[in-house]
Amino acid sequence: MKAAQRPCLVPRLTTSGTPLVIDVDGCTYRLSQELDHFRAGGRWWLGEPSRDVWVLACGPVTLEVARYDQAHNGSQWWLLRIQD
Rank of each mutant, 00 (worst) to 15 (best):
G41I: 09
I22M: 08
R39Q: 09
Q5I: 13
L80T: 07
L63S: 02
A57Y: 09
G17Y: 00
A57L: 04
L46T: 07
V61K: 10
C58Q: 03
W77V: 03
G41W: 13
A66E: 01
E48T: 10
D36K: 14
T18M: 03
L13V: 14
R39M: 05
V61L: 03
W45N: 15
W77S: 02
A66C: 00
G26N: 13
D25N: 15
G74Y: 00
V10I: 11
G41R: 15
D69H: 13
W45P: 12
A57Q: 08
G42W: 05
G41M: 12
Q33V: 11
T18H: 06
E34Q: 15
G59D: 04
R51I: 02
A57V: 01
G59A: 03
G59W: 04
T18P: 02
T14Y: 02
V55A: 07
R12D: 09
W45L: 13
K2Q: 14
L31D: 06
G59T: 02
Q33S: 08
H37I: 10
W44S: 15
Q83Y: 04
D23F: 06
P19R: 08
E34Y: 11
T18A: 14
L31R: 08
L31E: 12
V61D: 04
R30A: 10
Q33Y: 14
V53L: 05
E34F: 10
S32A: 15
L13G: 07
V55Q: 13
S75N: 02
D36Y: 08
L31G: 09
K2T: 14
E34N: 15
E64T: 06
A40C: 07
R81H: 01
D69A: 15
S75E: 01
Q70V: 12
V53R: 02
D84I: 07
P11R: 02
H72R: 04
M1H: 14
Q5K: 14
E64V: 05
K2Y: 09
L46E: 13
D69P: 03
A40G: 07
R39I: 06
R12N: 06
C58K: 05
T62S: 09
L35K: 10
R39C: 11
T28W: 06
L56A: 04
S32R: 15
G41P: 09
L63R: 04
A71V: 12
